[in-house]
Write a protein that binds this DNA or RNA. Structure first.
Lengths: 338, 338
DNA sequence: ACATTACGTGCAAGCCCTTGCACAAACATT
DNA sequence: AATGTTTGTGCAAGGGCTTGCACGTAATGT
């Protein structure tokens, strides 16, 4: 039998309510009693039972994390593990635990969310990815359950989210390329159904137009996913349409690898390429790849702290979103136009 | 107010005990009653409260996962995320949840373990790394709390663990090199305090001696960690001692990268190098790196299932350990000796 | 000196589910 | 017909903690 609040109460010669109040440092308890109770707790090695506590005040200090169990391209870059780490470190620093589950599709995700909510395991939920018309978001909103998403939800802008400034990130990429002497830029991204894609494309267009460079629709290609294969396919399509950009902005390192492969296939050398997410491979590819570091750990930290503020009711009005700075990492793939 | 077992009982016109028994599919309840109760549950949308259940029978169906929050080199390869995924998928498939925490050092690890145990959040604990004389292992054994470790504990061989056959893996690496015509092989590994290092070194020595190749102590270097830097240092040390192996077996891709860097510094070309863990970078380095895939997802799955068997008391006698096969991935760095 | 206001603590109900034991009814056994 | 077995349910006592309310005592005010 483990030591409970009762033995402590007995030992300190007070009631269990008093012990409970001491645990929560209730100001109505006199200092003298507090220290007596604390001594008893220490002596007995008392440790509160989280389950009982949770049951009594229906709050668990657990957060649920919904992870995609997806194809390679999501796990081959450090984004996820770093984001998870950020979430974990921030949460545990604030006394929260994280439970996670891997889902193969939207339906499974909703299932896990349902389970977390209904079985009352968690106080809030973190969504690590987001789609257009995300059913998880819809479900969570319907249940009115606290959640935060990494990435910007297309509708439901009133939800909590943390995101990069994708618009600005690409804007800067274009500026870099322009500074390096590139003029005819292509854009190759993932599915338009992801708001990241749209935001980045907007940044691309805006940066061009600010510089007075006309946007050429033939130089814009959106793939059905973020894979190398799609990047390659889109690049080939652009080339075979007869266009010949001198730089290619992509929304993911893997897409960029595909682009580089397509260029290599054609024996084209002097086209600049940029990626996103600053993957390992980009650092060792040849040429090393200029990429945007999205700071996943910081995204994770912010997601966790935002959610915790929400579930504890300490969220500041008007601070339901957080923007995390990206960092442009310049490497060989965008060296000055020769 | 959420729907509880009481409303269900009322609706189905039985006692709460009966409902509880229906939930657990107790055979003492008649089929007729069962279906009546189930109908009531469905109609009311009943979902058991995990906390209350846990409190009542002191079991949570949660597992705790202790993760290192360590320097880059541990996160730069997919080992962790893959292992976590394996653990997660296996656990959730069996109806278990995972809680994790990142620790910066052994002391923090013990702290998290203590918290998990004392606050009764979890039924068992998974250790993803292991040191010599691991205090976590000691603590868990002292508390007699169910746990499993990935990697072989040096003492405490009676603990549950899952591991690769590291001896055999390196044995095969040596065989490959020998088949490719290499004769003078060096070994560069991490700290000897890790059993992986020792097991791999044993495999190395054994394979050589089976082939009748003498083991040269000057060609063995053990670093203080698994980093590129240490790999480079050790390789330089070997070279500057005047030795000139024609192949280098390492215990980690990062070490191998360091070795390759050291060789490149000296302008040496024709030395074969092998790594471990099959990292991303190894696939894109030049030369691409021959490496041993340790199958982290499978290690994770097995760890989870072994632990679950242990906590449910369904563990088979004599099956307290599991060995996961490695897979040798041959690439350019071990091409035939020219 | 009496009424009022803190102050510190205890009572007991509640959170929701599990389970050993008891028990009534139905059936089988002599 | 009397006794013994099953079979299916219910009772009630937990599991460990929280918290609204009540209450006695001491301090304050007039």
């Amino acid at each position: 039998m483990r030591v409970t609040i009762n033995e402590v109460a007995q030992k300190a010669d007070v009631s269990t309510s008093t012990v409970s109040r001491v645990i929560h440092d209730n100001p109505r308890i006199s200092d003298e009693t507090k220290s007596r109770v604390r001594a008893a707790m220490k002596e007995l090695g008392y440790y509160p039972n989280a389950l009982a506590r949770g049951l009594a005040n229906s709050t668990t200090r657990n957060l649920g994390l919904i992870l995609p169990n997806s194809s390679e391209d999501l796990f081959l870059n450090p984004f996820f593990i770093e984001a998870i780490r950020g979430i974990g470190v921030e949460s545990q620093g604030r006394g929260y635990n994280i439970m996670f589950s891997f889902s193969n599709n939207e339906e499974e995700e909703v299932g896990f969310i349902r389970n977390y909510i209904k079985s009352r395991w968690v106080d809030g939920i973190i969504l690590l990815t987001i789609r257009e018309n995300d059913r998880c978001v819809a479900y969570l909103q319907e249940k009115n359950f606290p959640f935060v998403v990494i990435g910007r939800p297309d509708k439901a802008d009133d939800a909590l989210w943390v995101n990069n400034d994708n618009f600005h990130a690409v804007y800067e990429v274009v500026n870099l390329l322009a500074d390096r002497g590139y003029r005819s830029m292509a854009f190759i991204g993932g599915p338009e159904s992801f708001s990241v894609t749209r935001d980045r494309l907007d940044g691309f267009k805006k940066a061009l137009s600010v510089r007075g460079i006309p946007v050429n629709q033939n130089l814009i290609g959106l793939g059905s996913n973020f894979s190398e294969e799609e990047g390659r396919r889109n690049m080939k399509a652009i080339l075979s349409s007869g266009s010949r950009p001198d730089a290619v902005v992509t929304t993911d390192d893997h897409i960029a690898f595909g682009v580089l492969a397509a260029l290599a296939d054609e024996g084209i050398q002097d086209v600049a390429v940029t990626g996103f997410n600053n993957t390992m491979r980009g650092r060792y590819q040849s040429p090393t790849l200029t990429s945007v570091d999205v700071n996943p750990a910081e995204l994770g930290r912010n997601a966790a702290s935002l959610l915790i503020e929400a579930v504890t009711g300490t969220i500041g009005a008007g601070s339901r979103h957080r923007i995390v700075e990206t960092k442009l990492i310049e490497r060989e793939s965008t060296e000055c136009r020769s």
